[in-house]
Simulated scan of single mutants.
Amino acid sequence: MKTELEKHLLTRSYDDQERIEELLETRYSLTGSQRPTLVLLPTGHDETPKTKSLLHRDDTIDDEQFNKRKINTRLEVREFLKSTINSQKKVIKKVQEHKRSKNPGDSAGKPFNVVKVLNHYKIPLFEDFMPMRSLWEKYAQNLVFPDVKSPESKIPAKQAMLSKLASAEYTGCFMRVLESRNKNFVGVEGIVAYDTQYSFILCLPRDEDPDAPPSKQVGGLRIIPKRYTLFSFDIPLPNTTESKEHTYVSFTLIGSRIEYRSVDRSTKKFKNHNVDDIL
């Protein structure tokens, strides 16, 4: 008689092989109890640690420790921004000093190696954020044009696109400033390195022209407040051909209307109403 399945089940509850044989013998013998069921003992829970999600919060960390860790992370980000912007000012000052000290017969007339100084001060470069820009463009395409397979396809209605962009994440987006109360920000463009509640932190491209202003030669990070600022950005339509040329759809973003964290915007419903304080 084949009792391999029963043996396997009983080994989960009993370690003694003789006891297992005895239970099976009484189960199937003519003089035994011939019970139609197997009596299994509780085996307890498996102590093997299970794979945890990346979003799992460790139960050993209490609320106070968790909040402290969040605060420390924010402080580190602020400290990084503060130190980076201060370092950028030092590099700009070095470029200015080099320009003022240029003389035909002086060794200072050699081209100033800005990239070397940027690497020394660990200033973020525009090129470092290009992979992030590519990822954001794919994310925006899937978000705004989910059913568009080629530039010839019909794009969704304007209201449907705008409602999705109102709650989108903009880290990685290439933006430019169209209008601002601060005229020094007008024309600034770069990749969004960090989307905060009240500002966009852009990484600006460098101008390699030696005659360009020092600030443009350095590039680096620039904090642009959302309030009283108009931004513009482009989203490429999906291109199924082998051509590298894309058709872009341009959008204008009112910074004063998205003064929320990206995680809060994802669940917020924006309503249409008159805008009186754009700038």
Rank of each mutant, 00 (worst) to 15 (best):
T3N: 03
D16N: 15
Q17T: 13
E18H: 09
R19H: 11
L23C: 03
T26V: 13
T26G: 12
T31H: 12
G32I: 06
S33R: 09
L38Q: 10
G44F: 11
E47R: 02
T48F: 12
H56I: 06
H56Y: 10
I61G: 02
E76Y: 14
S83L: 15
Q96H: 07
P104F: 12
S107V: 14
I123T: 00
D128T: 12
M130R: 07
M130D: 04
P131C: 08
M132R: 06
E137P: 03
V144E: 04
M161I: 14
L162C: 05
L162E: 00
Y170T: 00
L178T: 10
N184M: 08
V186F: 00
E189K: 15
Q197E: 15
P205I: 07
R206Y: 07
E208K: 13
A212H: 09
A212R: 10
P213G: 07
I223G: 03
T240R: 14
T240A: 09
E242L: 00
T247G: 04
Y248S: 06
S250Q: 14
I254G: 04
E259H: 00
R261K: 10
D264V: 01
T267M: 09
K268S: 01
K268E: 04
K269D: 05
F270W: 03
N272M: 10
N274C: 00
